Amino acid sequence: MATVLIVGASRGIGLEWVRQARAAGDRVVATARDEAGLQRLRDLGAVALKLDVMDTASASGLAWQIDGYAFDQVALVAGVYGSRISGLQTPTEAEFNTVMQTNVLGPMRVLPQLQDALAPGARLAIISSRMGSISLRSDSQGWLYRASKAAVNSVLKDASLMLQDKAICISVHPGWVRTEMGGEGADIDVQTSVAGMRAVMAGLSPADNGSFINYDGQRLTW
């Protein structure tokens, strides 16, 4: 039985991750921003913690909420796409702040809170996106979201260096998933995505630390 932390689990990928981990018999701690989300987590048998990565005070209080835990697996799932900007449309300041603070500053707030709550050999994944890859990029659709995922890949790489004696840290692309964010026309269902990412995490070795990996195990370039 593993002890698992999922940050941003009120719906979509995060909620399905809770469901699959609980079905596997894992002890699960998961976060949500509001009472409705927290109740969905409790209904699945998870320990539900209130956390808003957009709020400094909320994020800084995570460490005491998880004091005493030793997590074998951590998944930072919380993220937003933002406005469906096409072409070279300048985002508003509010749009920029929402996407960057959620997708980049959020993990930068949460990661320091986890350092004393990682079990030896823990596996930690930030849910990124292939859209954040610079070398694989072929169009500019969603350039604000792309910028945020490129930035969080940088955050993960630094975390992998700082935590290398404690955890194996990766960025993982969940695929184009049929969720509220991905839409009905996406390639795969959320069950397939999460099952793949859980398998990737289970198979990690120290040589994978600091890598960018697809949900099916394929290595991705930055």
Rank of each mutant, 00 (worst) to 15 (best):
A159T: 08
G196V: 00
I126Q: 13
A46E: 09
S86K: 15
D208A: 13
E184M: 05
T90Q: 10
R109P: 00
L105R: 11
M54P: 00
T92Y: 02
G61S: 10
G25H: 08
A75T: 13
D216L: 08
M201Y: 01
P120T: 01
A23E: 13
E95Y: 02
D139R: 14
D216G: 06
V194T: 03
L15F: 02
A151Y: 06
F96Q: 10
M108N: 05
V110M: 09
N214S: 11
Q20G: 06
I126S: 09
G12C: 04
L5W: 01
G183N: 02
A23S: 11
G183Y: 02
A2F: 05
N103Q: 05
D116V: 02
F96R: 12
G185M: 06
I213Y: 02
S205L: 06
F71M: 05
E95K: 00
G183D: 04
N97C: 13
D208S: 12
W64V: 10
Q20K: 08
A21T: 01
S128W: 01
Q101G: 00
A199D: 10
D187V: 02
G25F: 05
G87T: 06
V77D: 10
S58Y: 07
L156I: 03
G37R: 01
A36V: 04
S211T: 00
E180D: 15
R27M: 10
N209G: 07
T3V: 14
G87S: 08
A75L: 15
A202S: 13
Y81F: 13
R33S: 00
D187M: 00
I170E: 10
A46N: 06
S129Y: 04
L163C: 05
Y145D: 06
S193E: 04
V152D: 07
A119Y: 05
G142R: 11
A36L: 07
Q191V: 07
L156P: 03
G82K: 12
Y215L: 01
L38M: 11
L204K: 13
R22C: 06
Q65F: 01
C169P: 09
R22V: 11
V155W: 09
A30R: 12
G8Q: 08
W222N: 04
G175W: 04
